[in-house]
Write a protein that binds this DNA or RNA. Structure first.
Lengths: 206, 206, 206, 206
DNA sequence: ATGTAAGCGAGACGGTACGTCCGGTCTTATT
DNA sequence: AATAAGACCGGACGTACCGTCTCGCTTACAT
């Protein structure tokens, strides 16, 4: 938590909510998802594991997916930050590998997949999810290409959002739809084909 | 319904199940999904709308997603058949357009997305879903490239499954993750980039 | 249960409810009232102790007091039947003693007091309680005087309901309001004063 | 309350409790009981209506019935004071009429009935209620007979408490149990029978 | 033709989780 | 030191579905 904050420890308080309770809820939700799967994430279960009253949960979140969104926002950045070596080829390739790992192997990635799944089931949630979570994620996904354009390594007129979708799309597809493990060869060749198509020769020693 | 079977109308039957009940259940599940969303699809609701006893549903299906899988298998082929004009460029482009439309606009597509979503939430279901539904779908997705290879329009050594994933991945990504409408320009340029990369010049008049 | 009915034992049934569940609920409610007091009678507690689902309770009863009414109706008659020796003085005296014992000492009496209490708190309940329980009880209370009138031991024009209230009123008052134990002397002198006032000399050997 | 205290309006106070808050709570509880019935009297509701913090209530009262007891003690005396004309017959008859009206028609009477009801549900409360409220009330109920004995209008050896219970018992019974309206004829004949039994002829012109 | 057995609509059952309400406790800032 | 405000934990409320069960009816085959 905010390291600056000294010992907290309070139950109920006129001014503001309990940070302790907030953390406990987010962690409980996260843990339950990983341990028992999405169906195992229940409001009752979260409350019990977090040692928190249901009312406290409903005071600050409206649904369990709302909680998972908060948990995701708190954790995702740690696991998934695009590298920035200055070399497009290397950065792109590395980022796609990292994205594949994030989506398929990490706890945050599991939360993310659960949220995307829920967005299929519930349009209202989908809208909120896109605003609060997905836009952040997509901005991260665009970073490698944006940097390369700024650095002059890619043409200035490049349609970065569309090109990003083409690059990361197959990775998400594998993670979400086929569920296959994603080998480095797969992501590397995605990067290579992209750079080749845009007149950027693959680096010899890649 | 199996056209051979004449008018049925029966309650109970020693030998074999009621085709009437089967159809009613599949349609009820489909309708509920479209009308009320995934959360609105409940066993009780299906039973009530189909005019069928819950026990009859449980006799033949184990979960509501099991029902939706049957509904999908019955409907999907009608909506999504790859074209076969003999021209790779034209067929590929057309198929990607059709896939985008299917995933984003049709009722069957909505069912498909719901099933993919459920596969995120439930690994056991995921396995069954992949065997029963996804493999069929992926086979369909591979058809254009497979035909082109057979016809000599693409190199014989092409890794068709991987290349297919790279082609359709961005379409699924748009449909499942971003939820954006998918313009023809997007799918067309996917096809074009693919053909260009494999030494197949885009047709002049495309 | 109707002793004639053979072995029952069923879970769910198109035709009619489970007698087993019904009994279990009534007994659980009764037991909880005696053991833990009125506040200890909760729908959850009844369900848990009866080994019954809450939904099953709500299917047949609307409130916990509704359950207690059924429990009362089933048990009260056993504990409280007016004697009929043919001698007014003896019967009246005996009945008042028995009534005092019933209200103050028995489990059924405790249920009855709880219901009267609830009737103070809830007018809608009061109406139903009076119709379903109290009228039965008052009819019982009137029996000794009615028999005496029929037997010619009391004047034919006697206002039996009003006289009954005057007789039993003090007993209920002691039981409900003061909570004091009710000595035989108290009820006996009630009977004696009543008979004396109506020109009926007290029996010598009472 | 303490009429001496001047105008107030304060939040917090170094010296003693807020008389304002006390009054507001008692009135809120009273009003809620009359408006919404016993179930509508909740600590939260009282606090909200009185514009008082829950903690303030809990500082001075332990339960909502504790509040209602205070409210009763504050109001009851106003509504129910035994008359003292010097004539037993008249005073007794008048007091029973007044008691019937108090129990059945007044707001204080409604509070009193609610407290008696609660005493059925909760033995601990019953004990406190009898000490703090009921003894006062019974003392009031005994007054007419006590005065008559002192004035020589009734025999000196009369068991006043028991006789009082016999007199008022039927009135409480009608008010609490049957819920019927209590006609003057009913109370008058109670008084008459009592006096007749104790050798006191009814006054001719009553 | 008739008995038997499987599938059927109906619906009660024991459960789990839902989202809400209230009870009582605690902390904070104010007066 | 007492107050208004209100967040906190706990637990009962009444509801919605879950998946299982029993029931009595309908039907088609196998006697």
């Amino acid at each position: 938590m905010t390291a600056a904050t000294p010992a907290r420890r309070h139950h109920g308080n006129r001014h503001g909510r309990s940070e302790e309770a907030r953390q406990a809820v987010l962690e409980a939700a996260d843990d339950l998802l990983v341990e028992k799967g999405f169906a195992g994430v229940t409001m009752e279960g979260i409350a019990a594991r977090a040692g928190v009253a249901k009312q406290t949960i409903y005071r600050w979140w409206s649904t369990k997916t709302d909680i998972l969104m908060d948990a995701f926002l708190q954790d995702a950045t740690e696991d998934l930050t695009p590298p920035d070596s200055g070399d497009v080829a290397r950065d792109l390739s590395e980022y796609l590998r990292r994205l594949a790992w994030f989506l398929g192997e990490t706890d945050s990635g599991a939360v993310f997949r659960a949220l995307i799944a829920q967005a299929q089931h519930d349009p209202a949630f989908a809208a909120e999810f896109r605003t609060r979570c997905l836009d952040v994620q997509r901005a991260r996904d665009r970073l490698p290409l944006e940097r390369a354009v700024r650095a002059g390594q890619l043409p200035a007129g490049l349609d970065v959002p569309a090109e990003t979708d083409r690059l990361v799309g197959p990775v998400y597809y594998r993670a979400l739809v086929t569920g296959e493990p994603i080998a480095h060869a797969f992501t590397d060749s995605l990067a290579e084909a992209f750079l080749h198509h845009h007149g950027q020769a693959a680096r010899p020693g890649s």
